[in-house]
Design a protein around this nucleic acid. Structure first.
Lengths: 148, 148
DNA sequence: CTTAATGCAAAGGCTTTGCAGAGAC
DNA sequence: GTCTCTGCAAAGCCTTTGCATTAAG
């Protein structure tokens, strides 16, 4: 459960190594953002990351947060979640999994993809290759509330 | 293939009936937007609908297009597709199906859900009920192009 | 020292809103 | 005639961009 990809990352060393392995120059802002993402392992918006980054003292500008998250996603360090029309969420968990999405609270919950079998998916359109698959199960609070 | 829900809708009568059945007052703008959506049966953005509506002559303002699409989606006449971080798409096809999404062209293609079997999905979080499920297969043009 | 990253503020694009006038019934 | 819908323009958000400054190696 502790593979090379995104190990524990408590130390700056391992974060820096992870960034370098993807060809990303490890600046202090990028290291902090990576630490923040991988220590919480939640689904965060750019705004969330910006607030957390600057909670104690100014550590990164909004532009840098957006650029860094975009860069991390592009390099496969994190995954973009397009689930809410209002904003993009970023998921530090890059292993195959799906999501529950509570449309009224915005809460995202992981669903392990190894449990889920999808069969009968048609072939990709000719001339295209797979980039990724998103399975989003939209839920809302039950009419009657929690059954006891 | 021609169920009651969204039949052919060539006539104003059937469109008006459809709107009324959902408790939507059939104004001329709403009738036109519904006709446009159900005759094309494509995946359209609000901007697309706005342009098509006003191609010949002014038929609806942007505000009305947005409000109407939101209303239709809320009433289950059409389905919102959250697939592109830049804009929402609307799908007149409300029967269960999934989508291919070409990330470089933005093109959306339907995948019949009756062919696809999904098993092993865990139970919904307690106190929540299903609102819908989206399966999006992100594809991109293959590196080598179409294999002839 | 050279190249690349950061920060600020301004711009951009999609969507919503407020309110007066018009339309549905 | 009443209540709701439409349209316009302005405002709101999230996100990107341009450019001078600063940091990385």
């Amino acid at each position: 459960m502790d593979t090379e990809q995104n190990s524990h990352l408590s130390s700056d060393e391992s974060i820096i190594e992870m960034l370098r392995s993807r060809g990303i120059t490890p600046t202090s802002q990028r290291i902090e953002i990576a630490r923040l993402l991988f220590s919480r392992c939640e689904h965060l918006s750019a705004e969330d990351v910006f607030s957390l980054m600057n909670a104690d003292r100014a550590m990164a500008s909004k532009a840098t947060v957006y650029n860094t998250l975009g860069l991390f996603a592009e390099q496969g360090l994190i995954r973009q979640l397009i689930v809410d029309p209002e904003r993009v969420y970023y998921d530090p968990n890059t292993s195959p999994h799906h999501h529950f999405y509570d449309v009224s609270t915005g809460m995202l919950t992981d669903v392990d993809a190894t449990l889920v079998q999808i069969t009968g998916m048609p072939a990709l359109p000719p001339g295209s290759e797979l980039e990724g698959m998103d399975v989003i199960i939209r839920v809302r609070p039950a009419a009657g509330g929690v059954a006891h």
